[in-house]
Every structure is written in C-alpha cells, then in structure tokens.
Amino acid sequence: MKAAKSILASVIAINVVANVALAQNDVAGMITQINRLNGTVAIQQIQDNTVGASTGGPTEEFKVQDGKLLDAVHAGDRVTYSLAGNGSKTITKLQKR
C-alpha cells in the first residue's frame, strides 16, 4: 500500500511540474485589437515557420497583467506572449517580434 501511495504522489508531482513548464511556453500571434482602458488585448494565434503562416487560428481576448506591456505594441504587430499558469487568460509577458 505504501508503494502505491508513493507512486501516486510521484505521478501527481510530475503532472504539476509538467503543467507549470507548459504554461511558460511563448505563443506567437498577431494583435488584432487593443483596449488600453480595460487592459485587454485581442490576439490571433499564428503558426510559426509553416506554409500559410499568415493564416491563423481564432482571435482570443486576454487580460494583461501589467498595462505597461501594451505601451510598446499596436494592432497588426506580430508578438510572442506568455500566459499565467492554471489556464487563466492573463498575459504575463508580451514582446514585439
């Protein structure tokens, strides 16, 4: 029974670490709309280095953790961004490409 608990605890720990690591990945996209008053930005996700990279997925709206991140970008800019962990739609890092 102790071995089973130990294995289960290890699997859970690996799962948590993997989810945190995945949350830190940068995603490429193009800004379609910025609302500086509300601190939100709409970004269309694009695929990097593929044929037809100009066509992207659906546009999603994200909250920005720090409104100063929006000062350096404009609609139409291609950016890379990172989201906060735990599946929230909050951008923690936003960089112009």
Rank of each mutant, 00 (worst) to 15 (best):
G39L: 08
Y81H: 04
L8Y: 03
H74L: 13
G39F: 04
M1C: 10
S82Q: 15
G87N: 08
I14S: 12
H74Y: 09
N49P: 00
L8S: 14
K63W: 05
T50S: 10
A28Y: 06
Y81S: 07
S10K: 13
T92S: 14
V41R: 01
A42N: 05
I7F: 06
A21P: 00
Q24T: 12
L83S: 04
K89Y: 06
I34E: 01
K5P: 01
G56P: 01
N38L: 13
L8E: 09
V16L: 12
I91F: 09
A9Q: 09
G85I: 12
V16I: 15
L69I: 09
V17H: 07
I34N: 01
K63Y: 07
N49W: 04
T59F: 02
V27R: 06
H74F: 11
I14W: 06
V11N: 08
A3L: 14
K96C: 10
D66I: 13
N25A: 12
I91V: 15
A28V: 05
Q24M: 10
Q33C: 04
N35W: 03
Q33D: 07
G76I: 08
V73N: 04
Q33F: 08
K5D: 14
I7A: 14
I43Y: 00
K93Q: 14
I46P: 00
A13C: 09
A53R: 06
A4I: 13
S6D: 10
L94I: 11
Q33W: 01
N25L: 14
I12Q: 07
S54M: 10
E60P: 00
S88Y: 07
Q24F: 08
G87I: 12
A23F: 01
A23N: 04
Q65T: 10
I14G: 14
K2H: 10
T40D: 05
L94V: 11
T59D: 02
G52Q: 03
G39A: 12
I12W: 04
G56F: 02
R97N: 13
K2D: 12
S82E: 14
L69E: 04
A4K: 12
V41M: 03
E61Y: 06
V79E: 03
G39T: 05
A9M: 11
I43S: 01
N38M: 12
T40C: 09
I46D: 00
D66S: 15
G85T: 13
K2I: 11
V17S: 10
A75T: 07
H74M: 14
V73M: 06
N35E: 10
T80G: 08
A3K: 13
V64E: 02
V17N: 06
D71M: 12
R97F: 14
T40R: 07
I34R: 02
Q95P: 00
H74V: 13
G87E: 06
D66A: 15
Q45D: 02
T50F: 05
I14E: 12
K89L: 13
Q47C: 07
F62P: 00
K63H: 07
A21Q: 05
V41L: 04
S10P: 00
Q45T: 09
G56I: 04
A23K: 01
D77E: 08
K93V: 13
L22F: 04
I31C: 03
A72D: 15
V64W: 03
A84F: 08
A4S: 08
D71A: 15
S6L: 14
G87H: 05
G39S: 09
I7S: 11
T40Y: 05
